[in-house]
Write a protein that binds this DNA or RNA. Structure first.
Lengths: 191, 191
DNA sequence: GATTACATGTAAGTTGTTACATGATTAA
DNA sequence: TTAATCATGTAACAACTTACATGTAATC
């Protein structure tokens, strides 16, 4: 036990806090609603689990960054709807205006391809084909989301949502191109 | 405390193990060598910290998937060089031939852009410009790595490394295009 | 009558990073 | 002589997932 262990270790940025605050600027939501919204919208670049959401919700309540707007109780069913507070929007804005940390992305498919020499061309092609299918599925979904955003009434969020969506579209298309090209390269190499 | 907590919870896939095994198929390496090689090669799609590498190295020794090939001792300096065992290559191959888990990628920049409506156009453009600079830096590095691989003698790894590199190049270019386009969109929206 | 969706929450784990300690060697 | 690089390792934490418990309400 040395000195360094006594002094406080650098606080980690709990991003779940800001994801929740951000979503509450769109509409008041329950914990369940937050999880569903994440899975329907930002899931392609961000995800959260219930084990993160519910405890964070209580933390935010304690810090007065959100408040319980409504507590529905039909029979024994409980439903908590939260709203962001003024202090909450201030904290969110502070974080939004802060430089993003360098994002560390981990891609298991690429890792397996990198070590392809220790396996076989056949297996590597299989990984690429699985990836290809996944991208094609995502692409279809992106198009659906795009229509949904474009047909809804104008909101200050729309421009930002379309930008994020466009990132998904462009990246997916590029990745797809790479898949096709790489499958071809490996197949030619086989002969 | 219920039954579910007594029965073993599903084992997690320790991917650090396979990263190390994979790198040892390229050459015998020390812990330090492994860390350096990761930072010079696969860092764009995979990273590991010393806190993961050294304990895993001892785990792999215990499981006999690697062996201590050489123990250099000049003065008091210690240096452990590890080699992969036959059993190690078998385990690696097993993992390589297994479907990759769906990769969850978390992108803080996109998250901040998604909530841009709670901040300002100016701040959102700033995030995009930071991203743009980062990609441009990466692109330069990709070109350097590409030359390095292409000028070195032919090895069974080359084709796979070039495929991974090409993913970096294609993705980076697509992302850069998106950055430029999005900056323009937001700037036009300002007026 | 069974399944799915709605709804909240936690225990127990795994995974991963950070910030050090320790000390040798090499280059400016 | 100072700084950087080489080299191994760990304590303390933060972050995150999984697999449940425990219900209600709606729908097929």
């Amino acid at each position: 036990m040395s000195f360094r262990h006594i002094i406080a270790i650098m606080k980690k940025r709990n991003k779940t806090k800001f994801v929740i605050l951000g979503l509450l600027t769109i509409a008041p939501l329950s914990g369940y609603g937050i999880k569903s919204l994440i899975d329907k919208s930002i899931t392609y670049f961000w995800s959260e689990s219930n084990g993160q959401i519910y405890p964070t919700l209580n933390l935010l309540l304690k810090e007065k960054l959100i408040i319980l707007k409504e507590r529905q109780s039909v029979g024994k069913k409980i439903r908590n709807i939260y709203t962001i507070t003024k202090q909450g929007t201030i904290e969110l804005k502070k974080w939004l205006n802060t430089l993003a940390e360098k994002n560390i992305h981990r891609d298991e498919t690429l890792l397996k391809l990198f070590f392809g020499g220790a396996s076989s061309i056949k297996e590597s092609i299989k990984h690429l084909q699985t990836r290809k299918k996944e991208i094609e599925k995502n692409l279809k979904n992106y198009h659906l989301i795009q229509k949904m955003i474009q047909t809804q009434e104008d909101s200050p969020h729309n421009i930002y949502w379309l930008i994020c969506l466009r990132n998904g579209l462009i990246s997916a298309k590029a990745d797809l191109k790479w898949c096709k090209e790489s499958i071809k390269t490996l197949e030619e190499h086989k002969q």
